[in-house]
Structures are given as structure tokens and as C-alpha cells.
């Protein structure tokens, strides 16, 4: 589903003197079936932005178009289920949403709310637990007996189980070990290859460089940069403005360019970097 923000402004506590703008006249298009990363400092409005996509927040003015649904300030709270079924959302530290007495029931909770039959939900739970890299034996355990990383995977499985077309991820790998992080990010990339739209909020620039097709840079409730990762990370204005930092490979290349190497465009992934270095060494 294509997602379009049209002049969306969101004010927190609109009728209060302590009101603050969460989003300030944001217009942006998030392409269908692409992997879009949203980056920006804490408090820049990333979470506020994605909360609009499944109508957890509604715009104070402007509109959000998600597929064939339009969300405005007048949107009713009823009948949001079809929208929320299509837009899955993995929150920050999603393990805090677990509550059932077994992992299986917890994964089945979402699908059954969206009207899936019990057998279908069950088989979906079996598929999903494997997809997130856990053994089926965990299905019978209490989610509270698992480790933090395992709980995270169960929570992600619970969101994926309703088979959403669009998946929003709010820092899904925060606090995971490096191996787990790679596995989880690989899973999301795989889901995108299978034809889903992925929206990822992250502070990890290497994830952006490695996985994203598009990047949106936010600052103070506004969108200050848009484009492919390579475009965004080569944008002088964003870098000097302190609105983003470079991925490891690009930083390495920057240091190299102080010696005898020259890069027309900063390589942002490890692969790009190594090819560039190889070429330049052989070329000399």
C-alpha cells in the first residue's frame, strides 16, 4: 500500500498552554513494497509520524492516505480494524505487550482479533515462531519465562501473524545482541522481498545503509531530507547540520580520503567500500 501524508500537522494537547507540535506540516510519500527508513534525533517526530499510519494518532490538520483509506482529524474511531489489520506495528520494546499464558495464545491474539479462525491463527502461530527463529517447543511456554531477546521475537511474531501488508518497526533491534540484530533485520528484508512494505525507525545508520531503499530524515517535526541512502548520506547540508551521522563504512572512507584515496561519492556499505578500495589499489 502506498502511504501519502498531505500537509499533516499534529499538535500534542491542542487545547493546553503546554501544547507542542509533534508534526509540522509534513508532506511525504512512502512507496509501496519498498523498505523505507525514518531517521532523526530523539523527539524529532519519527514515532508521531508512524502512529498516524494506523490511526493511533490522528492529524490535527491535513490528511494521511493509506491505500484506499483517508485519515483526517474527523476520522471515527470505529471501523479501524481493517486498516490496522493491514498495517502491522512493532513498537519499541514490544516485549512489554505480551500478556497471555502461553506464547502460542499470545501470537494468536492479533489474528483472532482481526477475525481469523482459531485453526488458521494456530497454524499462523506455528509458521511465525519458526519465521522469527524460535523453536516450536516454545509455543507451550509462558512468554514471561523467556529471555528478553526471545520475548522480542515472540512479540514480533505476534504482529506478523495477522499477515499485514505494511509493517512498521519502531527500533525493533534496540538492545538485541549483534547476531540477533542481523537475523531480525534479515527477516524484515526477506518479508519486503516477498512483497510487503517495510517502514523502519532506527538510530542505526548501518541498518539504513544495508537494508533501506528510501530514507526520510526528520528534525523538529519536519522532514529535512529524503532520498536513497546513498543520496542522503552524501548530503553535505544534512551532515553538517548534525541531523544524521554516517554509517561505519562511510566514516572509514572519509578517513581514507584524508590519505591518498579519493571517493566521488561516499560508499555506505561494507561491499561498496571494499570494491572501491580494491579498484583504487589496483588502479594505481
Amino acid at each position: 500500500m502506498e502511504i501519502i501524508f498531505k500537509n499533516v500537522t499534529h499538535a500534542y494537547e491542542a487545547n493546553n498552554p503546554l501544547a507542542s507540535l509533534g508534526l509540522d506540516d509534513v508532506s511525504v510519500k512512502i512507496s509501496d513494497k519498498k523498505f523505507t527508513a525514518i531517521i532523526g534525533k530523539t523527539g524529532s517526530g519519527k514515532s508521531t509520524l508512524v502512529h498516524h499510519i494506523n490511526a493511533l494518532l490522528k492529524p490535527t490538520s491535513g490528511s494521511v492516505i493509506v491505500g484506499d483509506r483517508t485519515i483526517t482529524s474527523e476520522t471515527n474511531n470505529k471501523n479501524l480494524k481493517p486498516l490496522r489489520k493491514n498495517v502491522g506495528m512493532v513498537f519499541q520494546f514490544p516485549e512489554s505487550q505480551l500478556f497471555e499464558d502461553t506464547v502460542e495464545k499470545d501470537i494468536m491474539f492479533g489474528p483472532m482479533n482481526f477475525g481469523m479462525s482459531e485453526e488458521d491463527a494456530k497454524s499462523s502461530a506455528h509458521d511465525m515462531i519458526e519465521l522469527v527463529g524460535l523453536d516450536e517447543k516454545y509455543l507451550e511456554q509462558s512468554p514471561f519465562d523467556l529471555s528478553g531477546g526471545q520475548m522480542r521475537r515472540v512479540a514480533i511474531a505476534g504482529v506478523l501473524a495477522s499477515n499485514p501488508e505494511t509493517i512498521i518497526l519502531d527500533e525493533p533491534t534496540a538492545g538485541l545482541d549483534p547476531v540477533g540484530r542481523k537475523e531480525i533485520m534479515g527477516l524484515f528484508k526477506k518479508l519486503q522481498m516477498q512483497g510487503r512494505t517495510i517502514i523502519l525507525i532506527t538510530h542505526n545508520m548501518d541498518d539504513v545503509a544495508d537494508y533501506a531503499d528510501d530514507v526520510i530524515v526528520m528534525h523538529d517535526g519536519k522532514i529535512v531530507g529524503e532520498g536513497t541512502p546513498s543520496e542522503v548520506f552524501n548530503d553535505e547540508k544534512l551532515l553538517t547540520g548534525g541531523m544524521l551521522t554516517l554509517p561505519q563504512s562511510a566514516r572509514f572512507a572519509q578517513r581514507l580520503s584524508q590519505k591518498r584515496f579519493k571517493f566521488d561519492k561516499l560508499p555506505i556499505t561494507l561491499d561498496e567500500l571494499s570494491t572501491e578500495i580494491k579498484q583504487q589499489i589496483n588502479g594505481d
Binding site: F91, P94, S96, Q97, F109
Partner: peptide, 11 residues
């Protein structure tokens, strides 16, 4: 936070 998470799961 938890209400939002469960709303997103269809509650």
C-alpha cells in the same frame, strides 16, 4: 504505550 500496542493488534 501498551494500549497503543494492543490497539495495533486489533483490540
Amino acid at each position: 504505550k501498551i494500549m497503543d500496542a494492543q490497539r495495533a493488534r486489533g483490540v
